[in-house]
Design a protein around this nucleic acid. Structure first.
Lengths: 193, 193
DNA sequence: AAAAAGTTAGTAAACACTAACTATATTTGA
DNA sequence: TCAAATATAGTTAGTGTTTACTAACTTTTT
């Protein structure tokens, strides 16, 4: 976990490349160009490409971790701590667009604008439908209206995505439908009047 | 949008390949092998690889769309409609794992188990910290305790991810921090006692 | 003197895709 | 009606490009 200055430079260059055009923009060729030296020189500092990505992830995990520990160790109410973590996450992402590219797969289509615009359009249409439904529900006094329908939709769709993602990362082992039902029970309690 | 039987067969084979090992497993070579014919034969049915992915997305969008319209057109309360869309999404994903691979980027690392396990570990640790905080808040009577902390964490982290993703898909135009604040106001209202 | 960090030139593999040919249906016209 | 013409769907063999990575040599720093 101790990196040389050159290694940190390479990590930063990798971050730049990924942030610009996504994971598939991180090639040894591009990296060498960005570092203004030849391709084989990269291999004097990292065994292979995987090690670079590994370093990138671990290097930043440490930064984020220390920031979160600072928040957790303070003497504030839990809700305030959560809020501060919340704020930190958004600030960090804005400063490090590379992580958006790493975290979101639509990046896979980044190289192909036709496909990425299809995905983005589909998502937008889905959002719109959910928002309309929520507004309807607010009108009919089924759903609380002290909160914006747009934000509720974000929470609902985000919750679904997060549940599916966890299921995937755990190797598809848990019962997805059961997890979905548990999530729904909570969402229902939170949003209904 | 009218596909020949062979085209549908190729779409299904593509879905199978992506579902098994992610987007990067969809190569013409693998597709030809799965179809048990030669690589150039693929090009008799699709102009290029992008067209195959495009067809895959559009083909399934129609299926999902018609299902959602059925739900929307029924005479039920909005909350029930939302619940039904909710259930349908989870059922559909479970039946079509290819879409999980397409939708989530961690897929980008799928080929490299070292990296994907790092990402998954980082996410798990983050979840755990948020859940602990929420439980603490529930104990201290800051946060409502008629809902499980795990589900609240899912909603919070999911909401964050969804907000960031929308920001990305819109081309990083909106003010991310502002969106984050709006989301927080809603989440706070929903979870505090 | 030797270790560290760079160079040029190149390899092998994977990739999407093509040219040119062949077998098999389908359509057409006397 | 049935052979010739044509369209469809497959084949083998190969191209050019991009990829991560290496061998062997040189320069720079310690």
């Amino acid at each position: 976990m101790n990196f040389t200055t050159r290694q940190v430079e390479i990590i930063e260059a990798s971050k730049y490349l990924i942030g610009k055009k996504g994971i598939q923009n991180l090639t040894i060729k591009n990296l060498a160009k960005k570092m203004s030296f030849s391709e084989p020189a990269i291999y004097r500092h990292f065994k292979d490409k995987t090690e670079i990505l590994k370093a990138l992830l671990l290097f930043h995990r440490e930064i984020i971790k220390s920031e979160i520990i600072k928040i957790l160790d303070s003497e504030k109410p839990s809700l305030v701590k959560i809020q501060e973590i919340f704020k930190f996450k958004f600030k960090h992402i804005e400063k490090n667009p590379a992580f958006v590219m790493i975290i979101f797969s639509e990046t896979s289509f980044q190289y192909c604008s036709v496909l990425s615009s299809i995905v983005s359009k589909i998502m937008e249409q889905r959002s719109k439908k959910i928002i309309d439904l929520l507004k309807e529900g607010q009108k009919n006094n089924e759903i609380r209206n002290d909160v914006e329908a747009e934000q509720l939709a974000t929470i609902i769709m985000g919750g679904i995505r997060k549940t599916i993602l966890s299921w995937k990362l755990e190797g598809f082992k848990s019962d997805l439908n059961l997890e979905g039902e548990k999530l729904w029970i909570t969402i229902q309690k939170l949003i209904k009047k």
